[in-house]
Write a protein that binds this DNA or RNA. Structure first.
Lengths: 160, 160
DNA sequence: GAGTATTTACTCGGATACTCGCTGTCCGAGTAGGGCCGG
DNA sequence: CCGGCCCTACTCGGACAGCGAGTATCCGAGTAAATACTC
């Protein structure tokens, strides 16, 4: 099993938009160009981020995407959930209720031990993702990564 | 994204084999019957558990699967990895090295902040899975689940 | 009855199709900036 | 020169194909028990 690659793209783009939040909005065309990604599919992901309230979109010339909230209020978990949907990694199929001797009734009110462990692990995973904000990502970015973005932003047509 | 359903099946079967470890080996046919699962596909998963050293298989009449190690020495993480393969949930594609202004050289020796967060979260996930053994699952099982298995095992042809 | 060779039925093991979600793509609706015209 | 109108080009938004991992399945190799036969 593997997390969709789009999660990584969404995180990188959100990080980039944080660095550029004082300037104009960046269209999907530019973001895809910067990271060498397929434009149309990246637009699909950014759309999901807009629906989740992480980004805001502007149509028309000089339009594009920008952060909908300050980066301190955007966690990595929220970006992941925006792309992935909020479906849990583990969904118990209740196979204990199947077969010739099904276990049903009051015995199944509580999840089984396997589901408990999987859910506990998933909570630990999400907790770590929620503990880091996009602002934290920017702060811990290497100086090389930041200057790389600044240099590229300066080459854009609408650079101030 | 969703974990494969086979992970759940493998965990339930390992748990069941722990309860039955004093008796005969259980063939995939019986396990699939008990949980109402497709026999051939379950056999494929059990095969993976054998390759991982979690189960041992015996061919021929009265053959089947049993635990290869005491249940205290089998963690949930090992069962998950046996089925899933040990590929990580998040694999950084290094998109920072792509595009018109690639970031290459010494700046990419260390993983980016996004990869760090994802890896940290994944370690937390695996740590929780490794903290629980199959023996723990049996101990915390409800009495209903245990009696259900005992009742069913008694109906088997080779029941002692 | 005991031992042995044979038969038999049952098991795992690997190789082979099918299905759904992630990936990738397209065109249409909407918007805002720029250009043109008239006053 | 200034204001208003129109046009254009650019953006997002939703709907439509392609591929790979997961799902499902089959048949062959191997084994151990049960059987039949012989002594």
């Amino acid at each position: 099993m593997r997390l969709p690659e789009g999660v990584e793209w969404a995180l990188h783009c959100t990080w980039l938009l944080t660095l550029a939040r004082d300037g104009d909005a960046l269209p999907a065309r530019r973001l895809a160009e910067f990271y060498g990604l397929p434009e149309a599919y990246l637009a699909k992901l950014l759309k999901a981020l807009v629906r989740a309230g992480v980004l805001s979109a502007t149509s028309g010339p000089r339009g594009g995407f920008r952060l909908a909230r300050p980066p301190e209020a955007i966690t990595v978990a929220q970006v992941v959930e925006a792309v992935e949907g909020q479906s849990p990694l583990f969904h118990c199929m209740e196979i204990r209720q199947r077969g010739p001797v099904p276990l049903t009734g009051a015995a199944c009110r509580k999840p089984c031990g396997i589901a408990k462990v999987m859910h506990r692990a998933e909570r630990a995973w999400r907790k770590e993702l929620a503990a880091t904000t996009v602002a934290d990502l920017v702060e811990t970015s290497g100086i090389g990564a930041v200057t790389r973005v600044s240099t590229w932003l300066a080459t854009l047509p609408g650079a101030s």
